[in-house]
Simulated assay, not measured.
Amino acid sequence: MTMTNFDLQPAVAQRWQALQQTLADIAHRYPDAALASSLAAEDMVLTHAIYESGLALEVFTLDTGRLHRETLDMLDTVRQHYGRELTVYRPDEDAVHAYVRIHGAHAFYESLELRKACCQIRKVDPLKRALAGRGAWITGQRREQAATRGTLAEQEQDPVFGLYKFNPLASWSQDDVWHVIRALGIPYNPLHDQGYPSIGCEPCTRAIRPGEDVRAGRWWWESSDAKECGLHAGNRVIPVTAAPYKATSV
């Protein structure tokens, strides 16, 4: 059962009310804006705020073809809880098959370039389709999530996709997120209860150990300053030492 805002601690209640106002302002300024949801905790908070406020903002997700079953099940959870359907974007099958044929199904473990190439096909290219023609998009990024997000702005011009980008949870703490989820009865991915604070594709995500950074389970074999998939490449420019993989060359 969904509780009222009065169940929130005063400081968090202020954040929640400010979030609702921010999303309403975004909907007014950019009626075509959409939330890119990973179906993880932060994005479920934003989804709840959008749906409960009756805002006409689209919520979409990217089904990479390598997600955990628990993550995919969240599509049904959202449908049952809110009576709403998320728009789902998927990668181009030919590009996926070409990558696997040339490099192998698990080539992303071999180098940063091959991992980014896989993310490009499975995540970035579908996101480009999802954002095409829009004036703005919304993310659930927070500053304390990763070294690459430490200076994250709450709103910015996205240099990668060429539209405006809002990160309304940028200043929220992990405790803020979970306090809102529990107080308002927001559904969430059960993997969070199994040691997964950050959830991506199944082969590239593991549960973290006590005391580890919240993003330690994402691409755990890579340096912490390179842990972005390309969806938020503008957070930090990482030098690439080899030519990037191009799907058109296969």
Score class of each variant (00 low, 15 high):
Thr2Arg: 09
Thr4Ala: 08
Asn5Gln: 07
Phe6Arg: 12
Pro10Ser: 04
Ala13Glu: 12
Gln14Gly: 13
Trp16Arg: 00
Trp16Leu: 02
Ala18Pro: 10
Leu23Pro: 04
Ile26Trp: 07
His28Ser: 10
Ala34Phe: 03
Ser37Glu: 02
Leu39Pro: 10
Asp43Gln: 13
Leu46His: 02
Ala49Pro: 11
Ala56Met: 06
Ala56Ile: 01
Phe60Val: 07
Thr61Asn: 03
Thr61Gly: 01
Leu62Thr: 09
Arg66Trp: 10
Arg66Asp: 05
Leu67Gly: 03
Arg69Ile: 09
Asp73Ser: 10
Val78Thr: 01
Gly83His: 14
Leu86Lys: 00
Thr87Leu: 05
Arg90Lys: 15
Val96Thr: 14
His97Tyr: 11
His97Lys: 15
Arg101Cys: 12
Gly104Leu: 15
Gly104Ile: 15
His106Trp: 10
Tyr109Ser: 05
Glu110Ile: 07
Ser111Asp: 09
Leu112Ala: 14
Ala117Met: 02
Cys119Gln: 05
Pro126His: 08
Lys128Trp: 04
Arg129Asn: 06
Arg129Tyr: 01
Leu131Phe: 03
Ala132Arg: 13
Ala132Tyr: 07
Arg134Met: 11
Ile138Asn: 00
Gln141Glu: 13
Arg143Lys: 13
Ala146Glu: 02
Thr148Gln: 04
Glu154Asn: 06
Glu154Phe: 05
Pro159Gln: 14
Pro159Ile: 14
Val160Tyr: 04
Val160His: 12
Val160Ser: 14
Lys165Cys: 00
Ala170Val: 05
Trp178Arg: 02
His179Phe: 06
Pro187Ser: 09
His192Asp: 03
His192Arg: 01
Pro203Glu: 03
Arg206Glu: 10
Ile208Cys: 01
Pro210His: 11
Ala216Arg: 00
Trp219Asn: 06
Trp219Pro: 09
Glu222Ser: 01
Ser224Phe: 03
Ala226Met: 08
Gly230Ile: 11
Gly234Thr: 03
Ala242Tyr: 02
Ala243Leu: 13
Pro244Ile: 03
Tyr245Gln: 12
